[in-house]
Amino acid sequence: MVEPTQYEEHPFAPYVRILGKGKNGTRPFTEQEAFDSFSMILAGQVEPVQLGAYMMLMRVKEETREELVGFVRAVRNAIQIPADAPRVDLDWSSYAGKRRVLPWYLLSTLLLAQNGVRTFMHGASGHTVGRIYTRDVLGALGIAPCTSIDEACERMATENFAYLDLQYLCPRLYEIIELRPLMGLRSPVHTVARSTNPFNAPYVMQGIFHPGYRPVHQEAAMLLGEANVAVIKGEGGEIERNPDSPCLVQRVRNGVLEEEEWPAMFARRHTREDHLDVGRLGRFWRGESEEEYGEAAVIGTAAIALHLMKKAPTPEAATALAREMWQSRNRDRMQVAA
């Protein structure tokens, strides 16, 4: 009698099978399956080949809002935030990097911080060739990026702003993002990382590059119980309003889905830059140079945050408030000193 082959299936194999069972057999994860499978990934309980298959199958399929909710819950469980962490007002993700325009959004966040908005910025660096990233630009401006959650807490308590790279916020998630050059494609972790909001800030700004991801972020945020979130197709994928074009802001506002289009701030488009000289950011902040596009980007981006946070009742009022903040900024503040 010939005995049938016996083997023990890996505990993660069923999740790969759900995603890859063929054209008619595959299906999305439930929220719980997404949570369980991503928890195993973050705990290092999967083989490299399984991780690669999982990520690329998910990339082809594209994540649903329920899957995104499960993934985010798993990541939040993996991040240890101190019990005495300071209250954070605004969560700001920065994962895309810039290629054609300077990162003016950094001045928006520093402007908000100078006006009492405690902002936590998190991101990842270097995963896409030809882009400059927040961590490196901040360093060039004399603002040291944090290297631990504890340091980020201290910085926010004293300066109302901290940037922490994903490498220190969630090392396992950072390792997966760093697979992009190997895979040749982004993976769902870019979407997940943007949505993490580890300090449970009551207001969240998110920037995306592909418009199709906007409602996924918006709807997942609502399912996660986040009452006030703004999602925009930002310049280069960062949270930065392009003042040359209308900006559709899709929001969760007081727990309700809504959207609003902010008009272009200029009648003509500006020429893109051949070289990104980050020193211009500091010179512009100090008033040593003028930047028509940059000023509009800084004010316009800050205005979206101010409107989200209910500090102004209309987009027009929010823009006027942001402009007033910009004109009265502390130009000598050492945060933008290089």
Rank of each mutant, 00 (worst) to 15 (best):
N330M: 02
E292D: 13
A152K: 06
Q80A: 15
G116Y: 05
A13F: 09
E63I: 15
N254E: 05
M222R: 13
H10N: 13
L185G: 15
E238Q: 02
R131V: 15
W104G: 12
G255S: 03
R76P: 15
Y7R: 11
F38P: 08
Y133M: 09
N254I: 02
D244K: 11
Q250E: 07
M222S: 13
Q250F: 00
G237I: 09
I304P: 03
C247S: 05
L19H: 10
V252E: 01
A338W: 13
A264K: 07
F199W: 05
P11A: 12
R65W: 07
E316W: 00
H270V: 11
N160E: 10
L321W: 06
F266W: 00
Q50D: 01
C146K: 10
H210E: 14
V229Y: 04
S289G: 10
R268I: 11
V2D: 12
P4G: 12
Q206Y: 04
N242Y: 00
I149F: 00
Y293R: 01
G255H: 01
R59F: 09
E33I: 06
E159L: 11
L224I: 13
T64W: 07
G20N: 03
N197H: 04
E31W: 05
V69H: 09
G123L: 01
E292C: 10
G44E: 10
A78F: 12
E273N: 10
A312V: 04
S245G: 12
P86W: 00
Y163P: 13
E219W: 02
W262I: 02
I239W: 03
